[in-house]
Design a protein around this nucleic acid. Structure first.
Lengths: 185, 185
DNA sequence: GTCTATATCAAGATAGAC
DNA sequence: GTCTATCTTGATATAGAC
């Protein structure tokens, strides 16, 4: 089923994300990942020399997927009132992403293991804000939108979101409205 | 120095927060906490029967401090354009809080150890949104503000905020503006 | 109320067989 | 490329002395 049944490394990362989403970062052990991927610890460590290498690759793939998702969406949105911020919000929060490709599980897992691993993600954040402000959105508005979208996704990955489906839709709609409103200001 | 030099339990929780802020949730071990508090593991476990009891108490104190902070601020803001949302934003993000009383370290530590511990925090979030909407703020605007404020604080506790002091001030100002703007709508 | 010593266990990582 | 067996470490928790 997974989109990576061919590539062992990809399958292992899929498994790691599943573990984080299903059981929490605490339970992201080599044994749990190997078991979920259908191999042994030894097999896992052939592909990733140590746990940090696995986490690092999770972060790397997270960024790749988020970038791809944005690019795809950009292609589908040739012109009109939509801008980069709208694309970003939908990339992070829209539901038609594969459930096995989560952009936030890697952040949670890495942050729990060692916050230092998140240093590259911090740079990414700067880049994203630069992107969002490219077409007229103010810095502060872009920052608030990014923080809120990421915050919501984070709670969801922890299975701790306090919002139901309807509230979630209202929040996304509000974020989108905040984009348009600011552009007009 | 510490505001709790009298009470051993409070001093231990102070130490635990310091460990999370300084070294990350991963390094929140009984040894690290005991050492920071100036006692031994045995001494620590006299006051908290196990690690979960410590985390639980951290979450409990977090809520207590946040509530107190909001109350104090409410007393200083008898009337005027300020509403509950402004009080909340400043309680979470203002800098004149004691650096040893962090509201987010407990969330990070507990989430890393066992996301289940965060279940009560989720209820709190609902309550906070209910408070914020009491005086005219819409649900979706309140949710966005809460998510953004908490998200920013979270990155800061992880020492991973991508924003400098000036950018931070602009973001807070934007959050406050979003309150007034919505109330007028 | 705090200490030392220790039991127990889980997790990361290595070595070598297949 | 994957497995089993094993080493090592570090963390929780207990027991009992002071």
């Amino acid at each position: 089923m997974g989109s990576h049944s061919d590539n062992a490394r990809e399958r292992i990362i899929d498994a790691a994300e599943q573990v984080v989403i299903g059981a929490g970062a605490r339970h992201l052990t080599l044994e749990a990942v190997a078991s979920k991927a259908g191999i042994s610890r030894g097999g896992l460590l052939y592909h990733f020399h140590d746990k940090e290498a696995l986490l690092s690759e999770m972060l790397h793939r997270r960024k790749k997927h988020l970038d791809e998702s944005r690019m795809k969406r950009r292609a589908k949105t040739p012109a009109g009132p939509e801008c980069e911020a709208v694309i970003y919000i939908l990339s992070v929060l829209d539901e038609d992403r594969g459930i096995d490709r989560d952009v936030s599980a890697a952040l949670v897992a890495s942050g729990a293991h060692d916050p230092e691993l998140l240093a590259p993600a911090r740079e990414d954040f700067h880049q994203i804000i630069a992107d969002l402000t490219k077409d007229g959105l103010s810095f502060e508005r872009a920052a608030v939108i990014m923080l809120a979208a990421n915050g919501l996704r984070l709670w969801e990955v922890l299975s701790m979101s306090p919002f139901n489906a309807k509230e979630r839709r209202r929040i996304i709609k509000e974020l989108l409205a905040l984009v348009k409103e600011d552009k007009g200001a």
